[in-house]
């Protein structure tokens, strides 16, 4: 194992902001900040339930734009996809299918579910983290 690019301070501050955003959405709107759940509910909306979802998603993009415009941290010039188009399509489909079947993703189960000490979310987090570690081991060290 070789540790690289370790940025604990920006990671901790960024994580704190994510936790703050999740707390704000619960305090103000009474909603769990689970991104896959918010997206799923926006795609197949119940009556009068899509407005806040779409605005939250717009907010994510605006938050990304503000970061780019401020030009803080390491910037964004070096960021590029780590996979080609076919793999991006398969990965996108799997993320959509998996988070819908498993009722949540990194934010809903990881940040919100664990904060509420939900055993269901703990099982979900162990499942997707385990599968992701194994996937990267296979693609980088077995067939890479």
């Amino acid at each position: 194992m070789e540790i690289i690019n370790f940025t604990p301070v920006s990671a901790f501050i960024g994580g704190g902001l994510i936790g703050l955003a999740a707390a704000l959405l619960m305090l103000l709107n009474g909603r769990v900040a689970g991104i896959s759940g918010i997206v799923g509910g926006a795609l197949v909306p119940a009556k009068n339930d899509s407005g806040w979802r779409l605005m939250f998603i717009v907010g994510l993009v605006v938050g990304g734009l503000i970061y780019q415009l401020l030009g803080i941290g390491p910037g964004v010039g070096h960021i590029q996809a780590v996979a080609g188009t076919p793999v991006l399509i398969v990965a996108g489909l799997l993320v959509g299918i998996g988070t819908t079947i498993g009722s949540g993703c990194t934010s809903g189960h990881g940040i919100c579910g664990l904060a509420r000490m939900s055993p269901r979310s703990l099982v979900a987090v162990l499942s997707f983290m385990g599968a992701a570690f194994v996937t990267v081991y296979i693609t980088r060290h077995l067939i890479g």
């Binding site: 940025t7 920006s10 990671a11 501050i13 960024g14 994580g15 704190g16 902001l17 994510i18 703050l20 955003a21 999740a22 704000l24 959405l25 103000l28 709107n29 909603r31 900040a33 407005g51 806040w52 979802r53 779409l54 605005m55 939250f56 998603i57 717009v58 907010g59 994510l60 993009v61 605006v62 938050g63 990304g64 503000i66 970061y67 780019q68 803080i72 941290g73 390491p74 964004v76 960021i79 934010s107």
Partner: peptide
């Protein structure tokens, strides 16, 4: 509710960017 969700979304997206999860 739309305004507050927008605010929470902005903080969330900015936090993900600061954390370099993007």
């Amino acid at each position: 509710q739309m305004a507050t969700a927008l605010l929470a979304g902005i903080v969330f997206g900015f936090g993900l960017s600061v954390a370099q999860m993007i």
